[in-house]
Each structure stands twice: as structure tokens, then as C-alpha cells.
Design a binder for these strands. Structure first.
Lengths: 242, 242
DNA sequence: GAGTGGTCTAGACCACAAG
DNA sequence: TTGTGGTCTAGACCACTCT
């Protein structure tokens, strides 16, 4: 990767994670960093803005950039991160069981969710996620076959996202997610170890590629006591004008 | 407000919301916008990047900037938005009932949440939110008294945030939120119309000022069938390197 | 080849914070 | 007064898309 600002971003991020830059301490000023990395100020600002957006630092006009202390508590379920990335990050004893893998014609609900016609085909993937030997999450994923020509058992049991990004070269860009709580369905009771709970947390995701085409709809159904969603949000500038 | 890029941001946003720039259509190129507004390209890019961050457009290298079609479905509970701002935005018949307003010494739990010592004082505010005449949300807010010297009944029944931002000049900068589902407590049953549900959705928020000081901790407890959280997330660049 | 957004430079002036 | 980050300019070259 040749991009200077990304290299600088990663270098500073490493120093934060390795406690070289400590929480609540001040980073070198933008002018110092310019000299240290021999780049223009805009490049430094590009790197620092990315750090700020991702919640690692807070910039304060007239004072400097300060390292935030909140990431050590975070399970970043927020943002876009796959189950495999997540389980690796938090080091859980996790396991995936593939229950169904097929190509279907979408019903009217799915046509609406994926914004396609009934003539197109859709991959349907049903997986159960086991954590510490308990069936906690039921994932129902639907992929527009136009973008994903092939899926196999092996891919679904490993990481679909890794396959899509590395092998197919699809670039996942953004997602809309919706979290609600619902009464557990028969499917939920059949596939999950609900241990008496009669509700599930449902995370619906609409996932888009970098050309803004909708290629996946998914429902992730969680046992309520095991569900946790963490979000880092900045107050928007334009909201403050209202 | 003198900032050129914010003016341009708002002008383009208005044109998107008024359907002058239609969903899936292309915005004028950055060069066109430079000429139209008589500013440098960096200023245009500043405005467009803000639109992209907030999910209104998608930029595609070599092609252009395209208007996204997802905002019309959004209840933006995500981000940082107060109950009053929200109810105004979605036009609900909403009402706030103040149950408790007092200054307390924090117990050990609260000391940890607000990262303060037992010598400091904390405002405790308990409010019930009524929507369509049903008690749906129980809000428990705790403010570090160092930053909020005074609260009154009137302020709590109107909008605390408006008071903090407009009158006290506090600048709310970012928040960490955590969503879980819990068994309903006696308080939940006492204050809310739970209609048989025995669980509540709990949103814990840690809210920071622009100097990165933690000034508020709050728990928002929702009847599960009425809860909905919508999130717009972009896949991070540095994650893609991993 | 022409047009697009992505990165980068080398300046400038401003508002804000702190001694 | 000095140093900080925030905004802005006027260029430049690049990688990518489309025709």
C-alpha cells in the first residue's frame, strides 16, 4: 500500500494500541508530525481525521489531539465486521454449523428486501453460530446471485466475506442495520438453545457494494441474554445547526 | 455560519431532500461544483465527504457521486440525537413525565460509570417517555454536577440537551452506546406499560464533551416490541487491510 | 483520450487555548 | 504572544471508468 496517510494512520494506531501513545495524553502536533513524516499538513490531517472518525483520538482546537480511553472496553459489533473477524478479535470458542445452502426464487418479502424481481435468483444460507458449545445465533443470509455466482459448503463454514472480498473481489462499502426484538419463531426454537427465553434480538442488514448496489440481505437472530451491540457515535455538525 | 463547505453541504442536502437531486442519479462532478460555487476543489470535497459519511451519497472513483436511496426509510435513532429531536423528526405524539430530579452522591456502580470519586455530586433524572399515551421508555440520566450546575423541572420536561447546548454552551462531541436485553426490573414494571413483556431493551450511553471529558451516563429502558435501532455503517478502510 | 474521484504539495489566514 | 487545529486556495499527478 503506497498511500502515505494510511501508513501514518496505521503507524499511529499501532503506537496507541501498544501504549506508546497513552490514553489521555497528547499526540505530537500536526506541525511536528509533518516534519517527522516529511509530508504536507493535509496528509497528516487525513490520517488524524481517520483516527478521530474511528474513535481513537479527539482533536481539540487550540489544544491538540488526545488519545481516547474507550477502545479497551469495546466489542466492536458496530460497523461492518463479520462473525469470523469478530470471534477472532474477542477470542471466543466459536463454531459455525451450516443448516441450509440453496438457490431459490425470492418470495415477495425477499424481492422487496433485495429490491429485485421474481425472475432473479438468490442464494439462501442458513447458519447457526455456536459459542462455548451453545447455539446462540441463527444467521439467515440472502445473496443476489448476480453478484455471487457460486457458494459452497466450505465457504459458508469458513467466512463468506473473506471469499467475497479476496476471491471475488467484491468491495463491501456500507450497510444499513436495524435492530428489533421479536417473539421467537418455531425456527428460532428449533435451531437455537433458547433456554426458556421466548424472544430473540433480530438484526436485519442491507449490505451494499461500492457501486451502491444492494447485494445481500440478512437476518441475524440472537438469544437475548447473549446479545450486545456497541456503537460509537459522533454528534453530527449539520445536526447542531438545526 | 461562514464556513463554505458547510453551506455547500447543506445546499446539496436540501436538493437531495427536495428531490432536485434524485435517488441513484449522479451529482455534478467536483470540477463542475468548483465552478458553480467558485471555491477550490478541497472545499467541495470537504462537503461531499460529509455527505458520504452521513450516508446521503456514494462516491465512486472514475464515475462520480451518486445519491443514495436509503434515507427515506430511516428512523435515525443512531448517532446522537435527543428524544425531543427524534419525536419532532418522526412526528410522534410524545410526552415526557418527570419522576425524579435530585442531587445524589454516587454509589460504587455510578462512580465507575461516570469515572468519578465518591466526593463529587451527580444529578439524577428519572423520566418516563409516553408515546401515543403508552409509557414506553424509562430514561435514567446521571450528569456530573461539575459540568451541569443546575437542572430544573421545566428543563427536564422540555429538552435537557437543548439547555446544555444552547444555555450552558456545552459541546457534546461523541458517545459510546451499548445495547443489551435484560429481564425487567421492579422499576421497569412500576413505571412502564409493559403489557406482559418481561424483558426490556437497555441502551447504556456514555456521553462525552468536546474536550473528551465524560459528563453523562444514562440508561434508556425500552419496551421490547416498541424498540428499533437503525444504524448506518461504512466498512472501514483499515479493517480492509487486515 | 477525456472525465472522474483519490492523493498530495506548499502555501495562507483564521479562531481558539494557554502562559 | 505562541502554538494549536480549522478552513481555504491553486495547483499537480495518479488510478480508474467509459467511449
Amino acid at each position: 500500500m503506497d498511500k502515505k496517510y494510511l501508513n501514518i494512520y496505521n503507524e499511529i494506531l499501532n503506537k496507541i494500541e501498544n501504549n506508546y501513545f497513552k490514553p489521555n495524553s497528547k499526540l505530537p502536533s500536526e506541525n511536528d508530525l509533518m516534519r517527522e513524516y516529511n509530508v504536507s499538513r493535509a496528509t497528516i490531517r487525513n490520517a488524524l481525521n481517520l483516527l478521530e472518525q474511528n474513535g481513537y483520538i479527539q482533536k481539540i482546537k487550540g489544544k491538540g489531539s488526545f488519545v481516547l480511553d474507550i477502545h479497551k472496553f469495546n466489542f466492536p459489533v458496530s460497523g461492518l465486521i463479520s462473525f469470523k473477524e469478530l470471534s477472532k478479535k474477542i477470542g471466543l470458542n466459536a463454531n459455525t454449523i451450516l443448516k441450509e445452502l440453496s438457490v431459490i426464487k425470492p418470495d415477495s418479502y425477499l424481492m422487496k428486501q433485495l429490491q429485485i424481481s421474481g425472475d432473479e435468483h438468490v442464494w439462501k444460507v442458513i447458519r447457526v453460530r455456536e459459542i462455548d458449545n451453545k447455539k446462540i445465533i441463527l444467521d439467515k443470509d440472502y445473496f443476489n446471485k448476480k453478484f455471487v455466482p457460486l457458494l459452497t459448503k466450505d465457504i459458508c463454514e469458513d467466512s463468506i466475506y473473506e471469499y467475497l472480498e479476496s476471491k471475488l473481489g467484491l468491495k463491501i462499502s456500507f450497510a444499513k442495520k436495524e435492530i428489533t426484538v421479536q417473539i421467537a419463531t418455531e425456527d428460532d426454537k428449533k435451531y437455537l438453545d433458547l433456554e426458556g427465553y421466548n424472544m430473540v434480538v433480530v438484526v436485519k442488514s442491507y449490505i451494499y457494494l461500492d457501486d451502491a448496489s444492494l447485494f445481500q440481505y440478512s437476518e441475524s437472530r440472537h438469544r437475548p441474554d447473549k446479545f450486545k451491540f456497541v456503537d460509537f457515535a459522533r454528534r453530527n455538525k449539520e445536526v447542531m445547526k438545526g
